[in-house]
Amino acid sequence: MPTPFRSGPLAAYSLYLTGSALLAANPVVGRAAASLVPPVGLAFWRWLIAFLIVLPFALPGLLAHRHRLRADWKRYLLLGVLGQGISGAVVYYGLQRTSATNASLIYATSPAMILALAAVWLGDAIRSRQVLGILLAMTGVLAILARGDLEALLRLSFNGGDLLVLAGAVSWSVYTILLRQSGAPLPVVTAFAANALAGVLVLAPFYAWETVAVRSVPFTTATVLSIVGVALFASVLALLAYQKTIEMMGAARASTALYVSPLWAALASWQLLSEPLQGFHLVGVLLVLPGVTLATLPARGPVAPAAAEAG
Rank of each mutant, 00 (worst) to 15 (best):
V230M: 09
R129T: 14
I246D: 01
D72T: 07
A33T: 04
S171A: 13
A118G: 11
A167S: 10
A252W: 08
I246F: 04
P305M: 13
N159I: 09
P187M: 06
S110P: 02
I53S: 05
L145S: 01
T101C: 05
L77Q: 07
L286D: 07
R155T: 14
L294S: 12
P205H: 07
L166C: 00
A108C: 11
A21W: 00
A25Y: 01
G199Q: 04
V91T: 12
D72M: 12
G284Y: 08
L201W: 08
I177K: 02
R68I: 08
A146S: 14
V189C: 00
A241V: 03
I114F: 07
Y107P: 04
S20D: 01
A50F: 04
E151L: 07
L63W: 12
L69S: 05
A308K: 15
L203S: 02
L186D: 02
L59T: 09
V120I: 15
S157Y: 05
I86A: 02
G291T: 12
V141F: 00
W270M: 15
R66M: 08
S99Y: 05
A100S: 14
P298T: 09
G229E: 09
A167N: 02
T245W: 01
L55T: 12
G291Y: 10
F233C: 12
A306E: 10
H67A: 13
P60C: 06
V174E: 02
T176V: 02
L287T: 06
L282T: 15
S99T: 15
M248Q: 11
S261T: 12
N195M: 14
Q271W: 15
R6N: 01
G41T: 03
L132Q: 11
A241H: 03
A118Q: 09
V40L: 01
T211N: 03
N102S: 13
A265S: 13
V170Y: 05
R155D: 12
L289Q: 08
V188W: 10
L286W: 10
F192K: 04
W270T: 14
A11S: 03
L277C: 11
L52M: 14
L201F: 11
A64H: 14
L23W: 14
K244P: 02
W209M: 10
L115I: 12
V224W: 15
G123T: 07
G183L: 10
L63D: 03
G8V: 00
S171W: 04
V120K: 11
G85K: 03
F192T: 14
P185Y: 04
D72P: 06
A71P: 09
A191Q: 14
A152Q: 09
R6A: 01
V283M: 12
Y259M: 14
S104T: 13
A265P: 10
Q243V: 12
L277Y: 11
P262I: 06
A193M: 06
S157P: 06
Y13W: 11
V283D: 06
L117W: 03
G161D: 09
R147K: 10
